[in-house]
C-alpha cells in the first residue's frame, strides 16, 4: 500500500514544477498493540498466533500505550532507587527483530516512554501520534524544505477501502497443503477446498463446493467479513480472529449443507442458506 502511494507521489511530482511535494498524508497501518512488556511472553504468543506468517512487508506501528506500567505507582522516599528506574521499558529491539522475522516492517512506536523513545530513534523508528487525529491540520510548507515532516496516523481498525477491492477467483481444487490468501479483498473458490488446505481473505470467503479445510475471513480484522460455503464441512472457520474448530462438531442444520458464517459481536453465527 505504502509503496504504491509513493509511486503515485513520484509520478505526480514529475508532471509538476518541482521534483517533489511535501504533503500531509494519512496512511492505514497495522498496529501491534502490546499488552505486556515481557519479550519472552510476547515471542511465545506471537509464534503461536502469528508465527505462520503470510505478511508481505506491511508497515506496522508498535503501540505501547496499553502496556501495563507496574512501576509507575508513586514511590515512597525509601524506594527512591526503584522510582529512578521508572516503568520497565519494553525491549523494542527484540520486538523489532520478532516483527522483521515475520516479514513485517516496523516503522514507528506509539505511547512510548522517554527511554523507549530514545531506543526507538536509535532503531530508526518514528514517534507516531497516539490516537488518530483526523481534524488536526498540519500545515506543511510546500516549497521550502527545512525538515521532513511526516505525520503518521495510527488507526487501530482498518477501514474498508472505498474503491471495490480486487476479488481473487480460484477455479482449481485446493488440496491438502495448499494455501491461498486474497489480500485486501474477497476470495471466491469454484472448486473443492479439501482437508488441510487453507483459504484466507481480508474480505469474505466464498466456496461454491465442499469447504473441508480451514477458512479465514477478515484476516486483517474486518468484522463484517463472512464465510459462505456450498457445503460447510470446514475443519476451522475464523472471522477477524474469532475462530472455531470442528472439535465440537458443526451444528446439524449447517454441517454438509449450504451455509454462511458471520460474526455477531464476539460470537460466530452459522446459518443455513436456502438455495
Amino acid at each position: 500500500m505504502a509503496d504504491q502511494t509513493r509511486d503515485n507521489l513520484g509520478r505526480k511530482a514529475a508532471s509538476r514544477a518541482g521534483t517533489f511535494e511535501l504533503k500531509s498524508r494519512r496512511f492505514s497501518l497495522l498496529g501491534l498493540v502490546l499488552h505486556s512488556s515481557d519479550l519472552a511472553e510476547i515471542a511465545a504468543d506471537w509464534a503461536a498466533r502469528a508465527g505462520a506468517g503470510g505478511f508481505e512487508h506491511e508497515p506496522v506501528v508498535i503501540d505501547l500505550s496499553a502496556v501495563p506500567r507496574a512501576a509507575a505507582t508513586p514511590a515512597t522516599e525509601g524506594q527512591a532507587p526503584l522510582a529512578l528506574d521508572g516503568p520497565a521499558p519494553v525491549d523494542l529491539r527484540g520486538i523489532v527483530e520478532l516483527l522483521r522475522a515475520s516479514q513485517l516492517q516496523p516503522v514507528a512506536v506509539a505511547g512510548a516512554t522517554a527511554e523507549e523513545l530514545a531506543l526507538a530513534h536509535e532503531l530508526g523508528l518514528a514517534d507516531a501520534a497516539e490516537e488518530p487525529a483526523a481534524e488536526r491540520a498540519a500545515p506543511v510548507p510546500a516549497d521550502t524544505v527545512r525538515e521532513v515532516v511526516r505525520e503518521v496516523v495510527v488507526e487501530k481498525f482498518i477501514e474498508k477501502p472505498a474503491a471495490p477491492a480486487p476479488t481473487m477467483v480460484i477455479d482449481k481444487p485446493l488440496r491438502s497443503g495448499q494455501r491461498v490468501y486474497a489480500k485486501g479483498g474477497d476470495l471466491v473458490v469454484l472448486a473443492l477446498v479439501n482437508h488441510g488446505a487453507e483459504v484466507i481473505a481480508d474480505g469474505s470467503v466464498h466456496v461454491y463446493a465442499p469447504l473441508r479445510g480451514k477458512a479465514i475471513a477478515g484476516a486483517r480484522g474486518d468484522t463484517s467479513a463472512r464465510i459462505y460455503a456450498h457445503s460447510l464441512e470446514a475443519e476451522l472457520v475464523s472471522i477477524a480472529g474469532i475462530y472455531r474448530t470442528t472439535e465440537n462438531p458443526l451444528p446439524a442444520e449447517v454441517a454438509g449443507k449450504p451455509a454462511q458464517v458471520l460474526l455477531d459481536g464476539e460470537k460466530l453465527l452459522m446459518q443455513p442458506l436456502s438455495l
Partner: peptide, 24 residues
C-alpha cells in the same frame, strides 16, 4: 487418501507443466 490429496495438489502446482502454465 489424505496423502494422495496432497500429492494431487503438488501435481497441479509444483510440476513443470504447472510452473510454465501449460496444460495441467
Amino acid at each position: 487418501v489424505r496423502d494422495s490429496d496432497r500429492i494431487l495438489g503438488m501435481l497441479s502446482s509444483k510440476t513443470k507443466r504447472a510452473i510454465e502454465g501449460a496444460e495441467p
